[in-house]
Nucleic acid binder design. Structure first.
Lengths: 211, 211
DNA sequence: GATTTGACTGGGTCGCCAGTCAGGATCGTT
DNA sequence: AACGATCCTGACTGGCGACCCAGTCAAATC
């Protein structure tokens, strides 16, 4: 069942690559145009591919969108895990997580995707499930860093899970505000709020955070 | 330009009433079906009215939706103002605000509207403006109650505005979680989080809140 | 080198839905 | 009563967009 094990470009590989390419284009197009006004043909155009090909690889538009959201969510959680496995004190890692949460600049509109997904998730159980896993991932990571800090004697916290839920919620809410009305909430102020709240939750002084 | 000042049912009144009725139906339909799959004809059906009539009172569907969101937002802010103008100690009023924030039961899905509106607001400046006013209203009210409490000597807080922003953000984020996955976050737990965070922000003990 | 399999094209179809329009009913005014 | 303004109806349309399909082409297999 194939020429040699060195074969890098079998038919299956080609299909996988094409699917990944389509997911990528889908993400870009949805970010740019919004879920509501994204057409299958837009994604086809962005990939320089015929409209028919989309439906060859994905049965329906919903399938494509759902797969794209799943892929994005999984890659986000993967990067998060790398962060908390990284070097530094617990507070440094916590700070890195907070900064990863927050859009890195005015032009980073990646959160738009999740605003669309939240609205979609209300009606679509598959999407809702993806969102549940993503949020669960965030909370778990936060709670894990806090526990690490407690073991290291850096932090004090009698309910890491609860603290993680509160922090995660606050960041979600503030990022919505920042994404929608960046004029009313600067990135600096957002990060400051995050550090103040996090410092309180883990029982350290706000000045313990890096400048 | 009219019979007597006692006239309660002039043509203008009738039109106003019909418009209000349509806005109300629009809200119900959007909550039930979601913005994305709400048709103008659905709203017409829900009002027992012809499709054409909608476009007699509202030029476009967008106009109708925007007006509905504006009306809903304004009524929400109005009710909020009543709460903080009400009786009781500052902490009682603060608690009332928190409880007004949180959906009153599993079946209260009113927040779905704002999830849809957030996604819409990314592309529609008019909607974004409404959202800005609504959030601004919440933050202002929170900050006002906190200030009242400080004047009364109940609270300590060196940045009421910042505290209000953090609380508002946290509640937004947690309510999203509650609305989307009520299984992962009970109303009780949500309220508990709100009280813990609020107590910290205003420098009182969590036990100061009503049971 | 013949045949099969899989990737891909592009035109077509079919249903849906916002918005239009011509006309009808009802109200207020004179 | 007559008339104009306003409210309302329901059939219609024009465009759009997801999905289908018949056919092409190239790579894999025999």
């Amino acid at each position: 069942m194939r020429s040699a094990e060195g074969a890098r470009s079998s038919r299956a590989d080609q299909a996988d690559q094409r699917r990944a390419e389509l997911l990528d284009a889908a993400r870009r197009v949805v970010l740019e145009r919004g879920l509501a006004s994204t057409r299958v043909s837009d994604i086809a155009k962005a990939t320089n591919v015929s409209g028919g090909l989309i439906h060859y690889h994905f049965a329906t538009k919903d399938d494509l969108i759902t797969a794209m959201l799943r892929a994005t969510s999984e890659s986000e959680v993967r990067r998060l895990r790398e962060i908390i496995a990284g070097p530094g004190t617990a507070i440094q890692r916590l700070d890195r997580v907070l900064r990863f949460y927050i859009p890195s600049s005015r032009s980073d509109q990646s959160w738009i995707l999740w605003l669309d997904a939240w609205a979609l998730g209300v009606r679509e159980p598959h999407v809702r499930e993806i969102l549940l896993e993503l949020e669960g991932g965030w909370i778990e990571i936060l709670s894990e860093v806090i526990s690490q800090g407690m073991e290291a004697g850096e932090f004090t916290c009698d309910d890491p899970q609860g603290a993680a839920e509160r922090l995660d919620g606050m960041l979600d809410g503030l990022v919505v505000r920042y994404t929608l009305h960046s004029g009313a909430m600067s990135r600096k102020r957002l990060l400051e709020h995050a550090r103040i709240a996090a410092a309180r939750e883990v029982g350290v002084d706000r000045s313990s955070f890096p400048a």
